[in-house]
Amino acid sequence: MADDLFYMLSIDALGAGDLRAFATQSGDPRIGLSINAEIKSNSVLKSVCGYGETFSEALHDLWRQLTEYEYVTEYVVMKAGTAQRRAVRWNGQGFKPHHEDDRTSEPSNG
């Protein structure tokens, strides 16, 4: 239960908006949790939603996605598409700001 409180406070500190809980639309009684955050992988943003049979399981799944990355180049983007966009990366002890290259510039052709 102490982990749940730590996860909730850490997720709240990201400033990614409210934690939203929802019931899945499939036949099984599962809970989904989401925030306004995505995982940036190369040039693709992947949704982050935690799922579980209980709130705690869904929270742990959301936390895992925010802190365990498939590739070393991945990081978390909050509020993508807004002026409040922020990028962070979990370093094992906390979320640290992550510098994003200018996303609006076109690569030069020589």
Score class of each variant (00 low, 15 high):
92 G>F: 05
38 E>G: 04
30 R>Q: 13
28 D>S: 14
61 D>W: 01
45 L>W: 01
78 M>R: 00
62 L>W: 02
57 E>D: 12
24 T>R: 10
81 G>R: 07
20 R>A: 10
53 E>G: 15
33 L>S: 03
59 L>S: 03
15 G>I: 12
94 G>Q: 15
18 D>C: 05
86 R>Y: 03
49 C>D: 09
28 D>W: 08
35 I>M: 04
80 A>F: 03
73 T>L: 04
19 L>M: 09
79 K>Y: 05
22 F>Y: 13
64 R>N: 10
106 E>R: 13
65 Q>T: 10
30 R>Y: 08
91 N>A: 07
96 K>L: 14
41 S>R: 03
42 N>W: 12
31 I>M: 14
19 L>P: 00
30 R>W: 11
47 S>R: 14
31 I>S: 01
46 K>Y: 15
53 E>T: 12
95 F>G: 00
41 S>W: 01
101 D>M: 08
89 R>M: 04
105 S>D: 09
78 M>Y: 00
42 N>K: 05
63 W>A: 01
107 P>L: 10
90 W>D: 00
36 N>W: 08
28 D>A: 15
61 D>K: 04
106 E>K: 09
104 T>Q: 09
106 E>W: 04
27 G>A: 13
58 A>W: 01
83 A>F: 09
104 T>R: 04
49 C>R: 06
28 D>G: 12
53 E>Y: 12
43 S>Y: 06
108 S>H: 06
23 A>C: 07
93 Q>R: 15
59 L>K: 00
50 G>I: 02
103 R>W: 12
69 Y>A: 03
45 L>M: 03
86 R>K: 15
103 R>E: 10
29 P>R: 15
49 C>I: 15
28 D>I: 12
43 S>E: 07
105 S>T: 15
108 S>V: 09
65 Q>C: 04
105 S>G: 09
33 L>V: 06
66 L>R: 01
32 G>S: 04
20 R>P: 02
103 R>H: 08
16 A>S: 10
29 P>T: 08
74 E>A: 02
59 L>T: 02
37 A>M: 10
54 T>M: 09
67 T>W: 12
79 K>D: 10
69 Y>G: 02
39 I>T: 04
65 Q>Y: 08
68 E>M: 11
60 H>V: 08
73 T>Y: 03
36 N>Q: 11
15 G>Q: 10
108 S>Y: 07
60 H>D: 11
95 F>Q: 00
17 G>T: 06
96 K>R: 13
46 K>L: 13
42 N>D: 11
92 G>N: 12
97 P>C: 12
62 L>E: 01
40 K>S: 00
44 V>Y: 07
15 G>V: 10
60 H>M: 14
79 K>E: 11
53 E>W: 11
84 Q>N: 08
15 G>Y: 09
99 H>I: 13
42 N>I: 07
47 S>I: 13
104 T>M: 08
84 Q>L: 14
87 A>L: 04
103 R>I: 07
28 D>R: 15
85 R>W: 09
61 D>C: 11
25 Q>A: 09
87 A>W: 00
16 A>D: 02
50 G>T: 03
58 A>S: 14
38 E>D: 14
68 E>N: 12
91 N>Y: 11
68 E>D: 13
87 A>C: 13
80 A>C: 05
30 R>L: 14
45 L>P: 00
61 D>V: 04
56 S>N: 11
52 G>A: 05
21 A>Y: 05
58 A>K: 01
25 Q>N: 13
16 A>I: 03
65 Q>E: 07
45 L>I: 03
